[in-house]
Structure formats: C-alpha cells, structure tokens
C-alpha cells in the first residue's frame, strides 16, 4: 500500500517537475503588434489550446504566438522578413484537431507574394 502511494507520488512529482520546467519556458506573453491573427474554432479549454500552440510553434517562420481562449484566436509574430501562407496555418490547425475560422493579416508584409509554396521560409 505504502509502496503504491510512494510510486504514485514519485511519478507525479517527476511529471510535475518536467511539466513545470516546460511551462516556464513556454510561458505566453501578449504580442504588442501581431503579424497575423488566426481564428480557431473548437478551442474550449486550456489543454486544447496547448495542442494548437504546439503545432503552430513547429512552423519555422513563427517567432512568437499568443493564444486568446476567450476570443478563440491565436496571434502570430513572424521572424523578421518571414512570411507565412494561409495553407500552412490551416494545415497546422487541422493537425491539432481543430478548424480555422479566419486568418487576418495585420501586417501585409507577412503575406506571401510570389511563391506560396516557399512562403514560410526566411528570405
């Protein structure tokens, strides 16, 4: 019995330590001038929000992102000179298991112009 509690406690502590460490690194801050605002449908709890956050973070051109669960939006700040296509954003949101409601380019420079296939690479 005691051994079971000890094991449970130990594993829980290890998970917490690992998670809190990651949490500290991944703490979100509101973006002052986002380049793109993505509307995401179905995002109804913090656990779901992290799934979308993680998928979008895998895109190289994104420097920072900020999830607003109340509005169901994700603000993206791109790396300097980078662009990001709508297709790439929709794909990431879909892979996270959600639907893209809207994509608004708040900074026109973030929109790919010539070659959409290579739009998420740095120039």
């Amino acid at each position: 019995m005691t051994r079971s509690f000890a094991l449970t406690g130990l594993l829980a502590v290890l998970l917490l330590m690992f998670g809190l460490n990651q949490q500290a690194v991944a703490q979100q801050q509101e973006i002052e001038k986002p380049d793109i605002r993505v509307g995401v449908d179905g995002m109804a709890c913090p656990f779901c929000a992290y799934g979308i956050e993680k998928k979008l973070k895998n895109i190289d051109s994104i420097e920072k992102l900020y999830v607003n669960i109340k509005e169901g939006t994700v603000d993206l700040k791109l790396k300097k000179g980078a662009t990001l296509s709508e297709e790439r954003i929709r794909e990431a949101v879909k892979k996270a298991g959600f639907d893209t409601r809207s994509i608004k380019y708040l900074n026109e420079a973030a929109k790919p112009k010539l070659n959409p296939d290579r739009s998420d690479e740095l120039f």
Binding site: L15, G42, C45, C48, G51, I52, K54, K55, K95, A96, G97, F98
Partner: peptide, 10 residues
C-alpha cells in the same frame, strides 16, 4: 475531445 496529430498525453 481532439488530441491532435503527433501529440502525446500521459
């Protein structure tokens, strides 16, 4: 609820 491609939960 959706889990998402490549995502793991323990």
């Amino acid at each position: 609820l959706p889990v998402g491609e490549g995502k793991a939960i323990f």
